[in-house]
């Protein structure tokens, strides 16, 4: 059992302080320098960053390997799709987040009893059940979903600023929670839940809170997705879609706050590059996944983290029983 290293908040804070303004400037300048298609791709990267970062509360922090997060992403997306013409953008995004949080709390209440692989499969089954529900229900459009979603009077550029602003703000909130006493307790939960229980920590409540938090993040990301894509289909809830944030977390490094974000960028760009190559797209994606697990269990951030100094020291690998 490897000891939990003290949090190196200062190091990350420095990076954040340095990167924060850069990100803000980038978000502001990008619409003037890239094409509409590239901007859309970058919006999807941002949405995936939020999705993966919030999902990492389940993987990198508490040990609750959910394979059904796409269902909550989809819940947020469908909330926006159903109400876009009645509720203003900002309020609707909050509503999407809240509704997904409620859904995930309900599902957590029944599934947190299980652990590990069983938990993974229960969440997979529940997520798939929600997908089938959306697919079969006529008032949410069945297989064709809900098209024609608009973000009030926002232009394409306006949607970019909306996405950029919301993702930056939400990731900042995640950062604060991640490093809060709550977040550190979740970390301890991952390391040794039994010991925590003996210490009097209400483990069940923390797990429930973590799952709800991750669901809220997924719902917000899904809401943004609905505005950027203009259409929501049941495909957003399919179980393989739950695999992408997990892949991103692994590729980036689940032991680091910024791991999922790095992974989201890497994986989205890789998928984009693989488009249009039948068979090869799957082969390469599979090889990358296996390669990361075997040769870079701490992810890209863990692999190259030492280049950025102390940042790498706080990594906690995925290796079991270490």
């Amino acid at each position: 059992m490897r000891a939990v290293l003290p949090e190196r908040r200062a190091g990350e804070a420095t990076v954040l302080g340095f990167a924060g303004p850069l990100i803000a400037i980038a978000v502001a300048v990008i619409p003037s320098v890239v094409s509409g298609a590239t901007m859309f791709l970058m919006e999807q990267v941002l949405i995936q960053i939020l999705f993966a970062t919030s999902t990492n509360f389940l993987f990198g922090r508490s040990h609750m390997p959910s394979f059904g997060q796409a269902a909550f992403f989809g819940t947020g997306a469908y909330t926006v799709a159903l109400l876009y013409s009645h509720v203003p953008v900002a309020a609707l995004l909050l509503l999407a987040m809240a509704f997904s949080a409620v859904c995930s709390a309900l599902i957590a209440a029944v599934s947190v009893r299980t652990r590990g692989i069983i938990f993974a499969n229960v969440t997979l089954a529940l997520g798939q059940g929600m997908y089938l529900l959306a697919f079969k229900t006529s008032w949410v459009g069945g297989e064709n979903g809900i098209p024609g979603i608009t973000a009030g009077s926002l232009s394409t550029r306006g949607i970019w600023y909306l996405t950029g602003g919301v993702v930056v703000a939400a990731v900042a909130v995640c950062w604060v929670i991640y490093h809060s006493p709550f977040g550190v307790t979740l970390q301890a939960l991952r390391e040794d839940a039994v010991r925590l229980e003996f210490l009097g920590v209400r483990v069940g409540r923390f797990r429930l809170a973590a799952f709800t938090l991750a669901g809220a993040g997924a719902g917000l990301a899904g809401g943004l997705f609905a505005y950027t894509a203009g259409i929501v289909t049941p495909g957003t809830m399919y179980w393989t879609q739950s695999g992408y944030p997990i892949l991103m977390i692994l590729v980036g490094g689940m032991g680091f706050f910024w791991g999922p974000a790095v992974g989201a960028i890497g994986v989205t760009l890789l998928l984009n590059q693989l488009s249009g190559h039948p068979g090869w797209d799957l082969v390469i994606l599979g090889l990358v996944l296996i390669g990361v697990l075997l040769f870079a269990p701490r992810g890209l951030v863990g692999l190259f983290g030492s280049w950025f100094g102390r940042l790498s020291q706080k990594g906690l690998g995925v290796t079991a029983g270490s």
Binding site: S35, G36, A37, F40, F225, T228, A229, I231, G235
Partner: peptide
Amino acid sequence: PDKTVQHMREFAS
């Protein structure tokens, strides 16, 4: 659908 949106925008640009 999101790939469709992306590619339609690519065609446009």
